[in-house]
Design a protein around this nucleic acid. Sequence first.
DNA 1: TTATAAAAAGATACCATTGTCCTTTTATAA
DNA 2: TTATAAAAGGACAATGGTATCTTTTTATAA
Lengths: 148, 148
Amino acid sequence: MLSKTSEYAIRALVFIQLQQIQNKRPGVIEIAKEIEAPEAFTAKVLQILTRNHLVQSMKGRGGGFFFKDNKCELTLFDVIQHTEGDLIFKKCGFGLTQCSDENPCPLHDKYDAIRDGFLQIAKAETICSLSQKIISGKAVLNRLVTMN
Amino acid sequence: MLSKTSEYAIRALVFIQLQQIQNKRPGVIEIAKEIEAPEAFTAKVLQILTRNHLVQSMKGRGGGFFFKDNKCELTLFDVIQHTEGDLIFKKCGFGLTQCSDENPCPLHDKYDAIRDGFLQIAKAETICSLSQKIISGKAVLNRLVTMN
DNA sequence: TTATAAAAAGATACCATTGTCCTTTTATAA
DNA sequence: TTATAAAAGGACAATGGTATCTTTTTATAA
Ligand code: FES
Ligand code: FES
């Protein structure tokens, strides 16, 4: 399971992309509301992302977050690397100090396949690809009931 | 990823089973050493398991942990239920308040498959089946270098 | 040029999981 | 029957992830 930080990061980036398509540049307050995350914590998560240039930001009036050159083709793997590292993709499912093909734990064969499947998802899906699913109505960003 | 509590629980139960086959009844100290877990914490984990009758215990001299009627055919799913609940098998991978087929998040299709794969492992593998892999030399319980 | 709006940064608080320690209960062996 | 060995239980401490608050920096609009 991903950490809250990773979840918020991914959801925030998808929302930023959705807004960017409409030529908008959302700020922390709006983003936090839309992804159903606490405001101050969302700000911290976005700080990590901008510090690592996964997304750009502008300070001051009219500022907010956006993708440079409409470049949202970053993978979930990239995002997760910066939010929680890659332990989740490497850890032994049985709890051994390290996973090993040569000296496997009794869960290795099956667990390794699952873990690798998740890695494939993380490397295949991008902020763009997730956004696309939402735009085409095949998926949702949140569980807010919109009352507009 | 499983919690430490779940990992320790599964490893401890497997070790108990391995010992039981040799007509031994290990105690907390030995178990903790073998599964490379802190002693006092291992005791707590074993308390949870015995309270829920996933394994039996005997107090006093010559006491320790064992399976009644050599019954170690409990699934990892059963163990995990008692150690950390089933959130891990149900949670939305994108962080939405609940996972839903009808109203999916953009990760749902792929994530659901992975999560279900893990559930299948947890329901298929038992303490017995894991022990068997160790007995047959196909897997190891720990990364201790045995110096006997 | 000043007021305002927004992100960045730093400090701190909260909470669940993980981990430790000490006392009590229970069974066995001597 | 007493000493001993072991699990059970209760209270507490450490840690890391999550969350909050306040101040500082920066950019824009008026
Ligand atoms: S050794 Fe345990 S998952 Fe690879
Ligand atoms: S709705 Fe997100 S995983 Fe099912």
